[in-house]
Amino acid sequence: MEGSFDFAIILKSVPYLAEGMVLTFQLTFLGIAGGIFFGTLLALCRLSPFAPLSFVAGSYVNFFRSMPLILVIFWFYFLVPFIVGHPVGGFWSVTLAFIMFEAAYYCEIMRAGIQSVTLGQVYAGQALGLTYRQNMQYIVLPQAFRNMIPILLTQAIVLFQDTSLVYVVGLGDFLVHADIVANRDNRLMEMFTTVAIVYFIICLLGTFYIRRLQRKLANA
């Protein structure tokens, strides 16, 4: 391979790369939103006094936490069309894979969050005559959520990095688009270096933001 780096080639493909980045962000946001939603439900199940429910939720979490994400992506990519009975695009299969996978991790975060809310709050809610649902909805979950924001966001950065794994099924995210351009123009080194820098900058900005948020929350 010829030595000199040629970064001009990358500038020409910026729109195509941006298209990939849009998909990366879509996957990340859907993964976070769906993951937090199901994760919270799972956390409530895990903390439920009804043993079978908490057992099922616990098994779900342990199951997904023992699997490599790549294998989960492969599973969903090939299995989802079978289950729903008609083809779904790779995007939705993979999105579902991320949601189900992340839910296991968000469940553990939300569980810690819920447990961090002092019992007094729960009793106070009960004393006011709130139902379980109302108590959770208005008292416990908002606080749990707030306490856990930094950790939820840290997990979001992890997820953002993990979306690059859709590479294995060729879904057009940032990395795959970069890979295509790299192969087309025979500029693999420049491309991968650029990709690394872009991911690094985005994640670093995210980390700084979280740290600021943490300080703010700590002072509040």
């Binding site: 391979m1 030595g3 950065i157 990095q161 993990d162 690059s164 794994l165 590479y167 990395l175 693999l188 080194m189 991968f192 270096t193 990709v195 690394a196 991911y199 690094f200 994640c203 670093l204 980390t207």
Partner: peptide, 22 residues
């Protein structure tokens, strides 16, 4: 900071494809 903020897969490519060329 560096190793935590670059996706592992990209790091894998850097080691495998880029390092031997630089």
């Amino acid at each position: 900071t560096i190793f935590r903020n670059i996706p592992l897969l990209v790091q894998m490519f850097l080691w495998y494809f880029v390092l031997p060329e630089v």
